[in-house]
Design a protein around this nucleic acid. Structure first.
Lengths: 237, 237
DNA sequence: TTCTCCCTCCCCTAAAATAGGGAGGGCTGC
DNA sequence: GCAGCCCTCCCTATTTTAGGGGAGGGAGAA
């Protein structure tokens, strides 16, 4: 374990509230000597959460313009499993370049490294560091610290989940095998009749499973039930 | 970086096929000197994938009995973000104890540590190590190697995704803001009419968005479209 | 044993989804 | 300037689903 990581983990032990979390980014920036550090969770208790060292003006502008939806870094990172070096983004689009130029104007560094993190219920987040340096220097820096950042992003998310009380196990009973079957097939787009055929039960019976699954999941309708089951990871598409 | 981790990462560089992956568990067991190492992905290209050092009899029995659905370790790990020490499971259920006794009979160690891993499209996996040792020894061992295992589980999953060609970026055009709005509200269980009211558009217009979203996502129906959008992370519940 | 849950089947009506047609104005990139 | 996509609205028609009832047998746990 590196000394820097050790420093961070010590600080992490006293981090329990949302306010504490907000200062973590600053601490990491100072510890790892980079221009900016940011953590952006898209869905903690249904709300986004940000801790970053970016210029508040940029953060505000970013939120006002709903940049989260078009930010190529966010979009890129959320679509893959591996950390993403900003250099490896698709820079062919004019919009991407325009967005990035604007970011740089607000003090965002030229080099960046973004790590996607995912929790059990669609609690997706990204952890990013960025800096101004040449390509070779950046590559060396990332090579040295990639493991640290991977662990840090994980711990950061862990604390964010805990601070927003998103770690409590989900209430409600488990779905029965039949209910899971039904939701699984409905989730891949099959009609109620088709699913009933596949499961070799009547469509009426099938509906009872949908009903009970809906009840257990607290869902308002079938689509909602499938959505919740997906988010909870009990079925997958 | 520890020497053991270094050894593993070197080996990982020549790991590219599914067959290579199968032997990784053995290598890790020998490197880290534990009784068993296992990696279980629930949904790579729609199929489960396993690499483990468990007795093949146990693996076969496990699969035949569909134990994945009731295994308390799997269920526990998939429901949370943090690694799970098997000692911290809920042992009150008779079924849990019976299951575990059976596992021990097949040579599974008494102590265990399971790390959940999640990819961008519901590609969930768990990485587990287990061993026979007393509580104090196990705690010390985990404390020393937790970081290694966290990184290893990540790299393992990365290779599994790559080997099963599950890393390719998703084809298809992006959804328009309006399409995202519609899917988002449908995903939280609102009816078509309600969503139209909220977005202040006619229900007919709304339907056009659902149609185009469905077309873009290659979805068979509305529920499917919401499911795919969720799985891709473009909306969240 | 009793209680709870699971699985299976059936009736009904109203609402929603699907499928196929249209149309016009606006913005953006090449 | 034009092609392409986005947003908005309209029509008719059929099929499917939603959600409300009710009923019985079986397995497992307290």
């Amino acid at each position: 374990m590196t000394k820097k990581l050790e420093t961070f983990l010590e600080r992490l032990e006293t981090t329990n509230t949302v306010d504490d979390l907000s200062s973590l980014a600053d601490i990491l920036r100072d510890t790892y000597d980079v221009k900016n550090v940011s953590y952006l969770a898209t869905n903690l208790n249904g709300l986004p959460f940000v801790s970053s060292t970016y210029d508040p003006k940029w953060a505000q502008h970013y939120e006002e313009q709903k940049y989260m939806l078009i930010d190529p870094v966010v979009r890129g990172a959320l679509m893959q499993f591996n950390p993403l070096d900003w250099k490896r983004l698709d820079w062919s689009s004019k919009r991407t370049r325009a967005f990035f130029n604007e970011a740089v104007d607000f003090g965002v560094g030229q080099q960046g490294y973004t790590i996607p993190i995912r929790g059990p219920n669609g609690q997706t987040a990204i952890f990013a560091i960025n800096h101004d340096s040449n390509d070779a220097g950046w590559e060396r820096y990332i090579g040295e610290h990639a493991h640290d950042f991977m662990l840090i992003s994980h711990y950061f998310h862990q604390k964010a989940l805990a601070a927003t009380h998103t770690t409590e196990p989900i209430e409600g009973r488990d779905l029965s095998p039949r209910e899971l079957d039904v939701l699984k097939y409905l989730g891949i787009g099959l009609s109620r009749g088709k699913v009933a055929d596949i499961l070799k039960i009547s469509e009426h019976t099938l509906r009872v499973y949908v009903d009970s699954a809906r009840y257990k999941l607290g869902a308002l309708n079938t689509t909602h039930a499938v959505a919740i089951a997906l988010a909870r990871g009990v079925i997958s598409v």
